[in-house]
Nucleic acid binder design. Sequence first.
DNA 1: CGTCAGTTTGAGCGAGCTCAACGTGAGTGG
DNA 2: CCACTCACGTTGAGCTCGCTCAAACTGACG
Lengths: 244, 244
Amino acid sequence: MPFNTDLKCKPTSDFSCNDCRMNAFCLPVALNSSEVGQLDDIISRDKPLQKNDCVYSAGQAFTSVYAVRSGCIKSYTTNSRGEEQVTGFHLPGEIFGMDGISSKVHTNFAVALQTSAVCEIPFSHLTKLTGVLPALQNHFFRLMSNEIVSDQQMITLLSKNSAEERLATFLLSLSVRNQRQKFSGTHFNLPMSRSDIGNYLGLTVETVSRVFSRLQKLGVLRVDKKEIEILDIDQLHELSTTTD
Amino acid sequence: MPFNTDLKCKPTSDFSCNDCRMNAFCLPVALNSSEVGQLDDIISRDKPLQKNDCVYSAGQAFTSVYAVRSGCIKSYTTNSRGEEQVTGFHLPGEIFGMDGISSKVHTNFAVALQTSAVCEIPFSHLTKLTGVLPALQNHFFRLMSNEIVSDQQMITLLSKNSAEERLATFLLSLSVRNQRQKFSGTHFNLPMSRSDIGNYLGLTVETVSRVFSRLQKLGVLRVDKKEIEILDIDQLHELSTTTD
DNA sequence: CGTCAGTTTGAGCGAGCTCAACGTGAGTGG
DNA sequence: CCACTCACGTTGAGCTCGCTCAAACTGACG
């Protein structure tokens, strides 16, 4: 079973949601094939992004939401002290950019952590479509609600949990998201740096590194640079204290 | 005939969004008066909630979102250890309950912190209405996006900021939300306990109490039980380190 | 071969937690 | 009316987890 996500995507033009590996859990999930056709018509698929390429910047006018087709996108804001705050990592099949809907301006930056492909979905077109496709409207409401729920879980994690619990929860989240893509849930590459992980989890790089070492010593993980193998997923669950 | 026997009746049924003090920033904000009428028709306004009354519980089927008309509603979840995690305080004009949209089950509990009145908006009716009123659909998308943005700001606050910065930011948030209701932004009562504040901000009761004392000693606040007077709002802004 | 970003490991420190004691006010019941 | 309780809030003392600072290692890339 492949454990990395470096799949090369095909040229952009003739690509349809119908052919996409992610269509079982991306936007088209609620639609029949003629409706998917309508969605396809409004989606634009530009050439792949290279590492560090920017999808949009904070302060930039909001026009579209995006779906990840391959690779990994990092969202982050900057606070008043100019420090970066990572707000999420987006894997294939996930939608991002919904933070800009309220004020018509993006509050986050979005950059590629590796070679990635994204689908751009112009929001004004999407809302026209949701007006006539109730299933799509409902699905989009649910996607936004999902984001609210997961942000709230993040708040709980930061507010109540130790460094070890945070990292364990993070790894389990990556595990299930990899499985959803039909990749291994126990053997995968981290697309992000230790410092991105630390920033996301409210920890310093040193703490992240120490916890990785500790979990390796405990026999829960095998860590080699960015390559992670989960050796004892039950113990990882216990360490994470998340029941879901 | 006694009028208080039918507990299911709507004692405020002749109440309309048009008459509501909050309509300038609640759901009706994007609608003309005939559209507000359609919205009114689907909203039910039950009798006021007493302190500790529950609007819904985690695990309960999701059917409606809610708007606060008066009082204050606290949202919270419980984690795997059974600990409470406060996820928000909802003041008049604010919508809550959107966490249940994705899974059709509430993930939060919602309880009244004081005598409160809420409007119940059945979600299936609301989505029918958003299907035919594009302005309402857009506004609801924006409300959900707002919630995402404010949850992400909360993540940043918890991840990067000290106890003092968290409490200062919290007080400033209450201040602007009070002003929006045309109440004083510098002199108000806290609807929630110290322990609710601490829980929300990822701090212990003792720390919240100590920071209140310190801010009072600095001359930034006057604190008397739940009564808060902001004496130096500029310094409070500096302490909060939020630019917005 | 030097540089540089990313990572690991160690040593010491400090903000906020834990534990404990005490104060306060509202409610309750005699 | 006081006595009692109970939830809530304040303050102090000591401890701990994760931060800061520092040093060394690794691999990629010119």
